[in-house]
């Protein structure tokens, strides 16, 4: 019997159901796990995603995109294949895709994390026979500290910059990470501003009832604004642009799982790093793999070969899924 899901030139394909999951080329029917750029690409005829994800897919793939929505847990049968979406905990609306056909269950995790995050639906563990998991941080050196302690460090950094007269510029990917940062910092410390790229997704989060502190656009800041008191949330890369000049003296920091490694911080020339990731770390990855009960685990994104080899040595049927995914690019904020 052939695999329920397999890799084709356009992406991961379910032949029995006639749909693709996160295809990298335009297709007839695309099931989208979440709206980051290497998962949701414009040009497909029809999209299927979670209701919470739909506004972001519109932002990414165009207002006119034909999108049909599923609530989390709701089942839809397409050509005898039962499809349902389950929260992945990565960003708002991010989903794992469960596919069932003739009693066989596959789950595609998309990007996910199990750590609590007030801005997203909590990760749901879905049992399956075959698991396709991401491995962005699939090395045992990645073990996240508690987000709470990292946010305490961010607040302390902000306060220290205030007394040193430097504007705090905190960088994180504009969709997902930026909103998690906004929700996590101590908004009582001072005014919060955001780069233009962060504003759209932030409004979309608010529209769905996620509570975030007031954020003002940097571009509309009054002339006499006291920048050194402020926290500015910006996408990575902004630090190298003339956009930064208005802050004069500034302190920059980057919030990402990559910041766990000093060498990566140094290579990227990051002044200060906070380890806040929207992906699973190694222990969580191992825990999820075993809790799903899957006997076969296909790996994708990042350290897929390493994770597959490790799982094979632990007696699982595991191999890297040959895809065009190259792991979440660093600008994805990971």
């Amino acid at each position: 019997m052939s695999d329920l899901l397999r890799v084709t030139p356009s992406g991961l394909y379910c032949e029995a159901g006639g749909f693709y999951i996160d295809p990298w080329r335009p297709v007839e029917r695309a099931v989208v796990t979440h709206a980051h750029s290497d998962h949701a690409r414009p040009g497909s005829k029809r999209y299927l995603c979670s209701s919470a994800c739909a506004p972001f897919v519109r932002l990414r793939c165009g207002e006119e995109s034909a999108i049909s929505c599923l609530e989390f847990g709701e089942r839809r049968t397409i050509n005898g294949v039962t499809l349902s979406l389950h929260p992945a905990g990565h960003i708002l609306g991010s989903a794992q895709v469960r596919v069932e056909h003739q009693g066989e269950v596959w789950v595609v995790t998309g990007d996910y994390k199990t750590e609590p995050d007030p801005t997203v639906e909590p990760f749901e563990l879905v049992r399956c026979h075959t698991l396709i998991t991401e491995c962005t941080f699939g090395l045992p050196v990645y073990r996240w500290p508690e987000a709470r302690t990292e946010f305490e460090r961010i607040n302390a950094w902000w306060a220290a910059n205030q007394s040193a007269g430097r504007t705090s510029v905190l960088m994180g990917y504009s969709l997902g990470k930026a909103q998690r940062l906004l929700a996590g910092v101590d908004a009582g410390l001072g005014p919060i501003f955001a780069h233009g790229a962060v504003l759209g997704p932030t409004q979309a989060y608010r529209d769905q009832g996620i509570r975030l502190p007031p954020v003002r656009p940097v571009s509309e800041a009054p002339l006499d604004v006291d920048w050194p008191r402020a926290l500015v949330v910006a996408p990575p890369g902004a630090e190298a642009t003339p956009w930064m000049r208005r802050f004069r003296e500034s302190a920059t920091a980057f919030a990402s799982g990559w910041m766990a490694v000093r060498g990566i911080k140094r290579r990227r020339g990051v002044e200060r790093g906070f380890v806040i990731s929207d992906h699973v770390d190694w222990p969580a990855l191992m825990e999820v793999v075993s809790a799903t009960g899957a006997s076969r685990v296909l790996t994708t994104h990042g350290y897929s070969a390493v994770v597959a080899k490790h799982l094979s040595e632990r007696g699982l049927d595991s191999a890297p899924l040959e895809t065009q995914f190259r792991g979440e690019a660093e600008e994805e904020g990971a």
Binding site: P140, V141, R143, V261, G263, P283, V306, K309, H310
Partner: peptide, 29 residues
């Protein structure tokens, strides 16, 4: 301590670069 094979330690080492840091990172909390 981390429950990993030698080859996986080497993978970590080459991703992290620094020997002392590799060990500091991969030990369980």
């Amino acid at each position: 301590e981390a429950g990993i094979a030698g080859w996986l330690f080497d993978e970590c080492r080459s991703a992290v670069g620094d020997f002392a840091e590799t060990i500091a990172l991969l030990l369980p909390k």
